[in-house]
Design a protein around this nucleic acid. Structure first.
Lengths: 297, 297
DNA sequence: GACAGTTACGCCCAACGTAAGCATA
DNA sequence: TATGCTTACGTTGGGCGTAACTGTC
């Protein structure tokens, strides 16, 4: 269970090839073979089928463990090195697309900032690994409830904005004339599958037992206006913050009435932020929030 | 950042001594010294002050990373080994004290079961590490909200019970005559500090910004009736499930009215449970729940 | 027979233990 | 002076590469 072996295992599983993984890791094919053999003998179970190279059930389980483990390990390393390293002159802000509300944009310093917009789930990863100095993530939550973020590293998380939700529908949609919608009304609707940009439905499914959300087109970009046009063109519904849906300029935005859910934005900084990140986080809080956060556990 | 080094580091920090850690780990003092030196040179920063042996600020950060990391590593290893190992004949159920409601107790199989009651935060740890086959944890949450559990390993979590809360007060307490209480009423009360048994207040503090919960006696056991007697004797208030507080036989139980919080119990099983654990989990669900669970993220 | 993973074998370095060194109470 | 961490040094084994082997398309 040496992380070295785990990393090799994960790479082999991803490449579905010993030799490709060896090239990528700078080993010989032989070394990779030996590492996998060592891991398999350590755990007393085959982890990879050969020809084709694919994880066995036990291998799948190990992947589930190994990936977050390696992530945490990298995050820990980066965090410790950051303590020593001299503070960078530029501030790198990593944000998910819908986390950049008007308030956040206004509060950003206008010099020495690199703004990177990435997939929603990449944001905590970037901040934890030191890839970004400050993160802005959004998601759906009950009012004043914190977002459920993966705990890759001890980060300081603060809510900075909450706003109501809306569903973006194509103009001719039968539900487009409703004054407000309930999630239950949308149980059988077709949703855009855009987990990085539109608000993800996975968690919401469980609120409506029995309801099956049908998914249609998958969008992997991070561009909100494209997303809105996709929704307006009838490729599927999109759940968005009300202000975004209302200002889309295409389609029809219908407010979401219940259950009580809001669009929430949070600031992520390392427990010991860089000076620039601390200042920027302070400005964001002063400008927009903080928003109350209820109940840890 | 080899886990071997991390484990040594954590041990040295705990023992506050190189030689004691060496004894505990089965190394020579010299080896431990070299391992710490290797870690410090790898991270380019001193981690431990010597004489006395105590973590530096950087060392403190590393401890924060290393402890959960090693936990996850052990959990992963245990999980994989469990896949291979032959299923044990006995079922070990690990539960926090207040997770054992009447329903849960009734649903437990009456043969071949070892029931272990432990500190609340130990339950996920035990299930993740394979130390127990099935876990029952409780906590405070908004209705149909899942508990916030540390994600040590991929576990299957299902709600099985929710019930209202009550505060247990000594008979003469000024608030004991109220028909119901609000958390705000209790902002300045003195609470028992019993995180393993009574419901912990840490998270609740943030709901009432400005309110400072004063803590008094600390109770580290897992015995509910002792806790009730402590509360009744005026050592501090205790937040409990209403049925428990009402049946305490001592003190006065006053229902908690708002904000909307409930006592929630969840079943924890490994993603691939043992046969006995799967059966027991099924019985628990059939008997008591499942309780709705809203929103992932 | 070509491609891809395994096995054999030799080499080397990382890591441990022994033992001497050194700093602090 | 005693205790306890560090440094020096010799030894060993784990892990890598080279190369020969084997199984599968």
């Amino acid at each position: 269970m040496d992380p070295h072996l785990l990393r090799t295992f994960v790479t082999v599983a991803r490449c579905a090839s010993f030799s490709a993984a060896a090239r990528e890791l700078g080993y010989t094919q032989s070394a990779v073979s030996q590492q996998i053999a060592a891991l398999e003998s350590d755990l007393r179970t085959p982890l990879l089928g050969r020809r084709p190279v694919a994880p066995t059930p036990a291998g799948e389980r190990l992947l589930e463990h190994a990936r977050p483990l390696l992530l945490r390990l990298d995050a820990a390393r980066a965090d410790l090195l950051r303590l020593t390293a001299s503070p960078p002159e530029r501030l790198t802000v990593t944000a998910s697309p819908l986390a950049l509300g008007a308030g956040a944009v206004a509060a950003l310093p206008n010099t020495g900032v690199t703004l990177r917009v990435v997939d929603r789930e990449t944001v905590p990863l970037a901040v934890a690994s030191g890839d970004g100095d400050l993160g802005l993530v959004d998601g759906v939550a009950a009012p004043s409830d914190p977002l459920r973020l993966p705990d890759l590293a001890p980060l300081t998380v603060t809510g900075v904005a909450e706003e109501p939700l809306a569903v973006l529908l194509p103009a001719g949609h039968p539900l487009a004339r409703c004054p407000a919608l309930d999630l239950a009304d949308l149980a059988d609707a077709r949703w855009l599958d855009a987990p990085g940009t539109a608000l993800p439905l996975e968690g919401l499914r469980s609120t409506l037992s029995g309801a099956r959300f049908r998914q249609s087109l998958r969008y992997d970009g991070t561009d909100v206006s494209t997303l809105c046009r996709l929704a307006a063109a009838g490729h599927g519904l999109a759940l968005l913050p009300r202000s975004v849906a209302g200002a889309a300029g295409v389609g029809v935005a219908v407010p979401l009435a219940s259950p009580a859910l809001v669009h929430r934005t949070e600031v992520l900084v390392p427990k010991v932020p860089t000076a620039a990140a601390a200042v920027a986080a302070g400005r964001l809080l002063a400008h927009a929030g903080p928003v109350p956060t209820a109940r840890g556990q």
